[in-house]
């Protein structure tokens, strides 16, 4: 069974969103997503400073098995990316909710957070898919 954290929000494309409480959110891919992908070998991240809107492509995660797009779950500006993933993409597998985070967004519309899935709804979605 995948690890789904109660304190996080989710979207159906398997990104997690953590509200940092300062107008920014941190984003990564879920434990369920990394399990489906298998060993991650490359992560392509967006550029710091770029403006992104919900649903935009924000990079690619490539595993031994497949390439998968990463989507922007909430609109805003990319303020930080996890450069550690360049040399250590395996962090996405070993610590998807910690050191394997992808990027941070400064929210342009905090009300978008209300549209995200909570842990329970995301858990049901994962079960329906399997």
């Amino acid at each position: 069974m995948s690890d789904i954290r109660n304190e996080l929000k989710y979207v159906a494309s398997h990104e997690w969103i953590r509200d940092e409480g300062d107008g920014t959110v941190t984003i990564g891919i879920t434990d369920h997503a990394q399990e489906l992908l298998g060993d991650v070998v490359f992560v392509e991240l967006p550029e710091v400073g770029s403006d992104v809107a919900t649903g935009d492509d924000a990079g690619v995660v490539e595993s031994v098995k497949a390439a998968s797009d990463v989507y922007v779950p909430v609109s805003g500006e990319i303020v930080e990316v996890n450069n550690q993933l360049e040399d250590s993409p395996e962090l996405v597998n070993s610590d998807p909710y910690g050191d394997g985070w992808f990027f941070r967004i400064k929210l342009s519309d905090a009300s978008e957070l209300d549209d995200l899935l909570d842990a329970e709804a995301y858990g049901e979605l994962c079960e329906d898919e399997s």
């Binding site: 298998g38 060993d39 070998v41 031994v64 395996e90 597998n93």
Partner: peptide, 8 residues
């Protein structure tokens, strides 16, 4: 079996 944890 696809893998037993890590394919790599």
């Amino acid at each position: 079996p696809l893998n037993y944890g890590s394919q790599i």
